[in-house]
Amino acid sequence: MYYIHKIASITHQDSFNQTDVNDSLVEITEDAVLISPDYKKYILPASLRRLSPILRMAVAAAKECQEAITIPFEAISVGTALGCLTDTEKFLNVINTVEGEILSPTAFIQSTHNTISGLISLELKNHSYNMTHTQNNLSLEMALIDSMLCCDEGKDFVLLGVADEAIDFLNKLKPIVLPENSIVTSGTTFFALSKKKSKSEIGFKACRSIIKAKDIEVDIDLFLRELKIEINEIDRIYTNQNSLDYPKEMVVNYEAYSGLYFTANAFGVHLAHDWLIKEAKKYALIVNSGCNNSLGLILLKNDKA
């Protein structure tokens, strides 16, 4: 077990520093906006002025996790599907509009995927292991697998996080690259993880990434069988799929609350975590299915239940 000592999410829901994120959920609409904390509480003005939304929210969520555990993280593992899109697009505009050879560098500097994890190490003054995974909708799973490895290798506390941001341009990619009726949003979720028991005694039990899934229900069965768990032991499934063949009352569609970004399954984990505490239930499964038939499975367990 890899226990969750803190979760911090900034999303289009009022999710930051809530005792139970399920309390104030509303179904996402086209006009929903990212609900941001006062970033000045987390980032000095000298740094803040340069930062795009994805960097601001990731640093704030990471700092909340650091504050909760007080001792420094021994590894930082970040997942992002599309990275720093605001700065990427900004620099594309710079290179296509500015004539001459002198170009503003800031957007370029902040356009690489690892700007997020690098900035977190800088803000936390953390010299430890620092990794950035980007595997489309399986980016959380990849960063989580790495975090689990870090714990197994003896690292005490690991900072695991994901972040993705929406830019208007993404809406142009509907319905060709992105699903037609999706609401493209931004979001970040960070976790403080350790093999040490947390107060809630809830943690990640297992994670599986499948590049080409054949049949979601069959893959879920295989995953659970390896863990010697029956499907009827699962108390709830959090998924972005509407067509799963399970009783309706046990399935929650997290994307209806997060909107679409490719690491939103981390918000599904957050919803599941808070629900397991409140209902004192044992298992929640997060089923993250991508348009390219990829499948991510994450099992959360509550030791107290």
């Binding site: 990275g83 690489t112 995927h113 994890s117 990794m131 950035t132 980007t134 595997q135 590049i211 080409k212």
Partner: peptide, 11 residues
């Protein structure tokens, strides 16, 4: 290769 596929992006 159809098993584990991952991408690292640290510049």
């Amino acid at each position: 290769i159809t098993g584990f596929v991952n991408t690292i992006s640290t510049a």
